[in-house]
């Protein structure tokens, strides 16, 4: 028997008054599939099952979801990593409103991203060629710019659950530091001023769920620590 027991969160606002868990039997033919492959097999059984997906190789960030209790990307999570006792439970990312099944409304997550002004700011006239940056300066962006906005981190963060409208969250703060750390960005002071309130950065309690779930192996907690250091250096 290679039938995998999958329990999946279902909710269609048009037909369901409340969400429920639906059981699927999926024949994996003994292969160590990715969770996304399993979702596709389930969609062949029930075309109404809704989930997002695009690149299927872990770079687009579409299919962040909660698999057996842990957030991650379905497309790069092999069954062998998550399945216990032949059972897999799939739920949408926690803490965001559900639109349908595994699809969540990421509006507030994107809003926090936009809030940190996620673009390079440099009002000095641009040279005719590129702005120069030493390899050492560029190295500071490694571990920051690779974020794919999948929201696995922010939706695993209790501080973000409680205050998603005020706490920027790990993803947004990682990007905030990506620009604070860029030698080409000149808006450091403005960026810091915008972050010094008790919520935006300081609601981080160092729980480090973000680090534990990031599918790209990034470390938002470290970036948040660096922002705090910069704030402290700037204000004292």
């Amino acid at each position: 028997m290679s039938n995998l027991q999958v329990s999946v969160y279902r909710y269609n606002p048009e037909t369901d008054s409340a969400p429920y868990m639906q059981e699927f039997q999926v024949d994996t033919k003994g292969r160590d599939l990715m969770v996304l492959d399993v979702l596709h097999l389930m969609k062949e059984q029930d075309s109404g099952l809704a989930f997002r997906r695009s690149c299927r190789e872990g770079v687009c960030g579409s299919d962040g979801m909660n698999m057996n209790g842990k957030n991650g990307l379905a497309c790069i999570t092999p069954l062998s990593d998550v399945v216990k006792n032949n059972k897999l439970t799939l739920r949408p990312l926690p803490g965001l409103p559900v639109i349908r099944d595994m699809v969540v409304d990421m509006g507030i997550f994107y809003k926090q991203y936009e809030r940190i002004q996620p673009y390079l700011q440099n009002e000095t006239p641009a040279p005719a060629i590129e702005r120069l940056q030493s390899p050492e300066e560029r190295d500071k962006l490694d571990g920051l710019y690779e974020c794919i906005l999948c929201a696995c981190c922010s939706t695993s963060c209790p501080s973000f659950w409680w205050n998603p409208d005020k706490f920027v969250g790990p993803a947004g703060l990682l990007q905030s530091y990506r620009f604070l750390a860029d030698s080409r960005d000149t808006a450091t002071r403005e960026r810091l001023t915008d972050l010094e309130d008790p919520f935006s950065v300081f609601r981080c309690r160092g729980i480090m769920n973000c680090v534990a779930v990031c599918p790209k192996g990034l470390n938002p907690t470290r970036a948040i620590g660096k922002i705090r250091e910069m704030l402290l250096a700037d204000a004292t």
Partner: peptide
């Protein structure tokens, strides 16, 4: 910036430092 009037120092940084 998120505004607030009931926190200890009105600033996340000063609260954090305190």
């Amino acid at each position: 910036m998120v505004t607030n009037i009931t926190s200890f120092g009105r600033s996340g940084l000063s609260d954090w430092l305190m």
